[in-house]
Nucleic acid binder design. Sequence first.
DNA 1: CTGATATGCTACAAAAAATGTAGCACGGGA
DNA 2: TCCCGTGCTACATTTTTTGTAGCATATCAG
Lengths: 114, 114
Amino acid sequence: MMINIPIPGSPVRGSKSGKPVMALFDLLCRRWSMGIIWNLSEGELTFRELQKKCETISPTILNTRLKELKLVNFVQTSDQGYKLTELGTELFNLLKPFKNFAINWGSLIYRKGE
Amino acid sequence: MMINIPIPGSPVRGSKSGKPVMALFDLLCRRWSMGIIWNLSEGELTFRELQKKCETISPTILNTRLKELKLVNFVQTSDQGYKLTELGTELFNLLKPFKNFAINWGSLIYRKGE
DNA sequence: CTGATATGCTACAAAAAATGTAGCACGGGA
DNA sequence: TCCCGTGCTACATTTTTTGTAGCATATCAG
């Protein structure tokens, strides 16, 4: 497995100069990144618990994402398994409003299909 | 090309029951989705302009993402090219604070490497 | 009308990322 | 010692993404 972290200031997807927000997007748009942060927000979880919460994630990708998220300091290990760092929690707080937005969006899509 | 949209309420990556927020994450975590929304926030852009803004996107994927984002009503076409819908603008507003977060995060990573 | 340019987009092969399944190594507990 | 549960790796297959070339149409100058 090959770990490749986007570094703000170095070229990333979306920005040759490495605009920080593009580096963040590069990271977050990797499959499951956001889901993992979301699921960890409720508290510490072991590897297998997290795997269950994510429902359909493969252990390979879960482990890769966890390594990445640890490297960028959004997630940390603990006795009990994995948990968000302070920074990761801040990021989750930015993600939180997506829930209601998504619910509203979902009801619009639903109506569209009627 | 095959368009496949996550529908809240139907199984999506991350949720067999299709939790709306997971459907949204499924969509947003596709490569370039967030970058496209970000770049369109400043105003209408033609296909080629958008391509230039995204710096390294391929036309294939740009077109795929645009079709998807139109289908879920985040983006619409206009005389001048492409622009965010009202809903897309709302979504952008949720994304906006990521910029400062990313800048802060970037400076932390930088310090880590010193 | 003709040629030069720009635009939106498609084709397609190659590369990279994600998936799914099997299962290993290790640390309890009985 | 045998049996679980846990964290995680191996690896073949499938899906996504990339990169390059280039087509079709529209516009404009001559």
